[in-house]
Design a protein around this nucleic acid. Sequence first.
DNA 1: TATTGTTATACTCTATAACTATA
DNA 2: TATAGTTATAGAGTATAACAATA
Lengths: 152, 152
Amino acid sequence: MSYTHRYRLALDRILELVVVLNDDMTRSLASYGLTVSRTHLLWELRQRGPTTQKALADALQVSPRTVTGLIDGLVSSGFVTREPHPSDRRATHVSFTEWGVSIMVVLERSHAEFAQALFASMPDTDFDCFVVGLDQLLGRLREHVAASAEDA
Amino acid sequence: MSYTHRYRLALDRILELVVVLNDDMTRSLASYGLTVSRTHLLWELRQRGPTTQKALADALQVSPRTVTGLIDGLVSSGFVTREPHPSDRRATHVSFTEWGVSIMVVLERSHAEFAQALFASMPDTDFDCFVVGLDQLLGRLREHVAASAEDA
DNA sequence: TATTGTTATACTCTATAACTATA
DNA sequence: TATAGTTATAGAGTATAACAATA
């Protein structure tokens, strides 16, 4: 079998991985009352600490309007709060509730356990080599995205 | 650095791959007037040949109502047609238009070129080893999904 | 009675544009 | 004049439930 053909099969398997991984995350997060998009926002908030909606919109590369919707949902479900920004009265200060922090801790733990479940049974040499390939792949993909962005 | 830690980093990189790949596909398909979901449907239709909406709903693991919406879009944009089913008057026969087929040919070619761009620069031994890891990963992931499904 | 696909309704994510309050 | 966030509006994907036509 030619490498050209094997490249295509490998890409197909990666796309399958994307689908299965996405479904699994969606289902698993739903059990916490979360969606993938809202969890991305929580993740950013976790990295930065309390911040403005504008900063979150930039970080997630999404419109300010979209952040309004995501935060609306997260406030209703009790993960975060909106408070007046201490120094800029136009802006909103978004912070975790105690409940929100406790869920993030659970998610981080379950993330680590998931990684363990996926890789722990893999022989070390296979894992090392897989990571090398993965890094190369991400590099090529970024080049590809950059090249397509130039065309547009 | 512990393997436990390295597993987490590898998972993070895979999740990053998922995001970048999804964005790239979304952007690239948009230039053909397609979305990811509609393209999944076209892909299934390509594998099976003309078929019913029910069959497509089962294949995509999505509700019949969702297929109605996807086909509505694909009919408006001229990729497929709805015709009476030859033997079952309840059902709809979904087929490609000529235009739809011609776009599928272009997409298949661009898919193969994409695979080439991602992998061709990788040394053969790295590629082979990456594929081994990828297969193991998909296997573990499927086990994980099956196990979570049992809980629910 | 069961199946196919639709209408009705609702929720989420996404966007742009117009607007308010503030800087 | 520029910025932060909202309301208004719209399109896409998803779901369930009720219903029509047909099997």
